[in-house]
Amino acid sequence: MRRLFALILTICLWFSFVPTAAAEFYSNLSPCSETPAFVEKAKNASTPQAQARFESYSDLLCGPEGYPRLITDGNLSHANEFLIPSVLFLYIAGWIGWAGRSYLIAIRDEKKTEEKEIIIDVPLAIKCSLAGATWPIAALGQLTSGKLTAKDNEIPISPR
């Protein structure tokens, strides 16, 4: 009875109370060069770096307060605003993670593993870091060969 009530309640909430959201991305945005608040902030820029930044932002879209907005609507004309930095971030984060993983795997069979985790073997760490630059290819190779994931019988299960 409780499950039936929960199912009916879920269906009612899903279909009746929440209308479909229809967002208009550009309705309150205008080019930054035409936004009065942005133009005023650009005039008050004191350093050459700030002036260059405002000049590069002038072709983006700004809100009424004069701040540039990132548009992530799937339109490729805005790829340089969000897609490129996010892919670059994921690549660098993966590189760091893969280099750390490679270092831990390399010192796993040594006598003083815990000591090598605290006092880092710099030549080995540099070698692992340089090799980590190709982490997407290495990860794909290990995934297809089965070395990246553990088999089900290797994963301990706690008794309940």
Rank of each mutant, 00 (worst) to 15 (best):
R3H: 11
K127P: 00
I8L: 15
I119H: 15
A6F: 14
I8R: 09
M1F: 15
P159G: 05
A23I: 13
S86E: 10
H78V: 00
I107V: 12
S86Y: 07
L143C: 03
P31K: 08
T20R: 11
F5I: 14
K111M: 09
F17W: 09
L143W: 08
K147W: 12
Y67D: 12
G100W: 04
E115F: 12
E24P: 01
I92V: 13
A133Q: 07
F15E: 06
E110Q: 14
L148A: 10
H78Y: 14
T47E: 04
A37I: 01
I137W: 10
N80F: 06
P159Y: 06
V87E: 03
V18C: 05
A150S: 14
Q51P: 02
Y57T: 13
E117S: 14
A22R: 14
S56M: 10
R53F: 09
T144W: 12
V122Q: 15
G141W: 03
G100Y: 07
L9S: 12
K116P: 02
I92S: 11
S77H: 09
T47D: 05
I11E: 06
F38Q: 00
E65G: 08
R108P: 02
A150V: 07
E154M: 03
I71G: 01
C62D: 02
T134E: 07
S27C: 03
A42C: 05
T35F: 00
S33H: 08
W98L: 00
I92N: 10
G66I: 04
R3I: 13
D109E: 15
W135E: 01
I92R: 09
A99I: 01
V122M: 15
C12T: 15
I118L: 15
A99T: 07
Y67N: 12
A52F: 05
A139W: 04
F82D: 10
E154R: 04
L130K: 06
A125S: 14
E115R: 15
I126W: 10
S129C: 10
K41D: 09
F17K: 08
S129D: 02
G146L: 07
